[in-house]
Simulated assay, not measured.
Amino acid sequence: MSFSTPLLAAASLLVGLVGPALAGATPEPQQDVPVAPLGTEIVEHVAASGTAELRRVLAYWTPQRMAAALPISLLDTVTGEGGLLRGLAGERSDAARRVRPTAPRRQAAAKPETHTIGSRWVTGGLVARTTGRVFLTVGGADFVCSASTIRSANRDVVVTAGHCVKDGTGEWAANWTFVPGYGTTGARPYGQYPARRMFVAGPWSRSGDDNYDVGMVALATAGGRHVADVVGTQQIAFNEPRGGQAFGFGYPADPPYDGSHLVYCAGRLKDDPYAQTRDQGLGCDMTAGSSGGPWMTKFDPATGRGTITSLSSFKYSDDPRTMYGPYLGDAAKALLSSAERA
């Protein structure tokens, strides 16, 4: 037996400076409320119940904490028996073993490549602003993921992996904050946006089903400005044709990466060879911390604009060079419908 591994990365708990205050919270007394837009069960969680809570979250994530990611040691601790990822792993090929993905460091290409399993993105464009790092706390430990802004009615929504929002059947993430265009030494060039409300699909909340490893989060505003108005958004599409060319982005933090640079993979999508999920695979050696990063089709490297059709979710232990992402169907569409009304 082997397991799928959601790609979280841990961050240490250090004392630091207070971040800028945000506004835009919509208090909601009831939490974890199942709703069913478009006939699909969605589970909702109120992440922050008012301005004071938003300020507390901002103060928690100091530049020192953001920069002090320790993905190897803390990830090993929380993925053990009874740890964070317990219950999120699915049965896989008997020949596979659970491993930590590693990869050689490569130089950044001056021109984006159409086939790469991991290169630094140095071209800029929209994707360099809309993709960001997520900082969160689960079970008393700090983690990092990746996410992207998407076009939404309230101009506040980001899409990420479900396991970057809720620990499957377990608890919701706390201190959830999105930093678009994250840079070295904790740089926050476009501000910092804590979560107001979080949304996952019923099958993810009930059983940690990898087919539904998608989360959407409605953010608070920063200085009265919506995140979409500050950095822009990417299109997102549902029930798209399978296969084709895709570009995947994220902030891998496990060595040889360090979480301070946007990295991309590019290539053709393929079906899950074990037929354990409806997910598709992309050649990609990005490591822990890249979970939730957007996969785009119809991507234009010159402008950094594309259409999100999946995101980084898990790897099989016998193939560390292929990342798998969920197919965005009706359930993901219902998530957006709920999140953009929040």
Rank of each mutant, 00 (worst) to 15 (best):
V35P: 05
D272Q: 10
G224N: 11
L70W: 02
G162I: 04
L85S: 02
A141T: 14
S291N: 08
L54W: 01
G325I: 00
L84C: 05
R242E: 11
A96F: 06
R341T: 14
G90V: 09
T287Q: 09
G208A: 13
Q192S: 15
F247D: 01
F247L: 14
V263A: 03
L126N: 04
M216Q: 09
R65Y: 08
L336K: 01
A228G: 15
P320I: 15
P256E: 13
P71W: 10
T307R: 01
D229E: 13
Y327H: 12
S93V: 04
E91T: 12
A342Q: 04
W172P: 02
E28N: 14
A220C: 12
G132D: 01
P252M: 12
N211K: 00
D76V: 08
M1S: 12
Y324S: 00
F135R: 01
V15F: 08
R197E: 13
D258H: 13
N239D: 15
V165S: 04
G244Y: 08
R188N: 11
P63I: 12
Q64F: 08
P273W: 10
K166P: 03
P273R: 07
Q280K: 02
G83R: 07
L328M: 14
A9H: 06
D285M: 13
Y324L: 01
T51S: 11
T79K: 06
E28Q: 13
L262N: 04
W204G: 02
V179D: 02
E81A: 14
Y251M: 14
V165A: 08
T297V: 15
R268Q: 14
W121A: 02
S2D: 12
C284G: 03
V231P: 05
G87P: 07
L13T: 10
D330L: 13
V35F: 07
V230Q: 09
N211E: 08
T62A: 12
L336W: 01
M286H: 04
D271I: 03
D318Q: 14
S317L: 15
A9I: 11
R268D: 13
S148I: 06
T102L: 06
S338D: 04
M323G: 02
L38Y: 07
V33N: 10
A10E: 07
Y264I: 05
P203S: 05
G16W: 08
T309Q: 03
Y193R: 06
A302V: 12
M66C: 10
M323I: 12
T123E: 09
Y274V: 09
R129V: 00
P189R: 11
R129I: 03
T221W: 01
T62P: 05
F314C: 00
L328H: 00
A128W: 00
E53S: 11
D285V: 15
S310C: 05
Q107V: 14
A25L: 10
R196W: 10
A59D: 15
G259R: 02
